[in-house]
């Protein structure tokens, strides 16, 4: 029998690997050869203008978007080559926080959290489902919302419930699509703190798409600037904040109206 190695046990093996990724929508080529390696315990922030393909990029990682060319590997497995069943197993290792939270409107908070759990009963590990739901809600400080409907929650609460729904499967990789967009600074800070505590608790690797430079400064181990469909610049927050390149500088400078 062939001996296989678990890529997660090797520190230098990336959890996410993207090589020369190309993706078009009609005649509009959004990604023109993007590359990325995300290692365990790393928080990589992707910066880019609206419409630059950031959301498309992370959707390619979980098979929500097909790719035109290139290689996308998650936990050592090639996403485009996978059958649905196999893809679902990999997806259970990847948490995805959607920009608008994407809570199921017709379900209560409890049912929202139970939904992924019941699809992956192997993740319960003998624990009671209600205990797991409560524990996930407790971790975001919203255990009192158990029987509420999403329409009864504020934007910040929805985002935290979406975090709890993502955490219930204890993923190894988390993809955040603009986690603080549309939130006030106080709620944004709470979300950033939660992102920190999640990483500490679960030792996750995160890929974060954000325009929030405070979020990028606080949370990033590395920043990649996605411009014209390629890795335009890459480095730590401090490196990039000192860049003289006007396209990079544009993300860091203060707003000047006049």
């Amino acid at each position: 029998m062939m001996k296989t190695t678990n890529p997660l046990k090797e520190e230098n093996v990336p959890l996410v690997e993207i090589n020369n990724l190309k993706k078009s929508f009609g005649s509009n080529q959004v990604l023109k050869g993007f590359n990325l390696k995300l290692y365990p315990n790393e928080n990589v922030v992707i910066l880019g203008k609206s419409g630059s393909g950031k959301s498309v990029l992370i959707k390619c990682l979980v098979g929500l978007n097909d790719i035109d060319e290139g290689e996308v590997k998650v936990i050592g497995r090639s996403i485009p080559d996978m059958e649905r069943d196999e893809l679902d197993i990999i997806r259970s290792e990847v948490g995805f926080l959607f920009q608008g939270s994407a809570l199921y409107d017709s379900m209560t908070v409890r049912e929202n959290l139970l939904f992924p759990l019941r699809r992956h009963p192997e993740r319960m590990k003998g624990q009671n489902e209600d205990e797991l739901v409560l524990s996930a809600l407790r971790s975001v400080g919203l255990e009192h919302t158990l029987e509420l409907m999403p329409a009864e929650l504020s934007g910040g609460m929805k985002r935290r419930i979406a975090l709890a729904r993502m955490l219930i499967l204890k993923p190894k990789i988390i993809l955040y699509d603009e986690p603080t967009s549309g939130l006030d600074p106080i709620t944004s800070n709470e979300i950033i703190k939660l992102m920190f505590s999640i990483q500490k608790e679960l030792n996750t690797a995160s890929l974060i798409i954000t325009h929030d430079m405070d979020c990028a400064r606080v949370i990033s181990s590395r920043i990649i600037v996605l411009q014209d469909g390629i890795n335009y610049a890459e480095g730590t927050y401090d490196d990039l904040s000192r860049s003289e390149d006007p396209k990079v500088k544009a993300f860091f400078k203060e707003i000047q109206i006049f």
Partner: peptide, 21 residues
């Protein structure tokens, strides 16, 4: 209207990534 709004608010995508067809 229900499925349209689920699509717009990415609920269908969220279902997909949680391992549901």
């Amino acid at each position: 209207a229900e499925l349209g709004s689920m699509k717009v608010t990415e609920q269908i995508d969220a279902m997909e990534v949680s391992g549901t067809n």
